[in-house]
Amino acid sequence: MKVTMTVNGRARTFDVEPNRLLLNLLREDLDLTGAKYGCGMGECGACTVLLDGEPVMACMTLAVDCEGATIETVEGLSSGEALHPIQEAFIEEGAVQCGFCTPGFIMATKALLGESPEPTEPEIREYLKGNICRCTGYVNIVKAVQRAAEALR
């Protein structure tokens, strides 16, 4: 089936089988390997991308269902060598260890800060509860989100 979507600002048309998942399309056809395959069941958030500005699980999204959609992945955040303030904040606060969960956290954070520019810590923890990190223990991630919020204000 033909499907056209905008990925990181570029219109793309694909010919896909109906059972093709958005995550595999991004990773395999476009080499956008930022979004990760973690649990495959919507529990870990490692595959989080923004679909029309809202965070979703790419590992459970049918590519054919993305007709006309705008998709943003972590690769779309930086401009050349200049990182996005959220990426900078994650580095500054040591919110990255193995890095596997980071693209998902960063995309969820982008959506959070778009909705709520000054989130409280409970709001941050509530919004990011769909993203699991097995290294950092979340403290530095929360700090990074707060730092990014300040930078973006």
């Binding site: 919507g42 958030g45 989080t48 679909l51 809202e54 965070p55 979703v56 699980m57 459970m60 999204t61 969820a108 959506a111 919004y127 509860k129 769909g130 993203n131």
Partner: peptide, 9 residues
């Protein structure tokens, strides 16, 4: 129900 991601879907 679920997470923000789940509720968006």
């Amino acid at each position: 129900i679920g997470s923000v991601q789940i509720r968006n879907m």
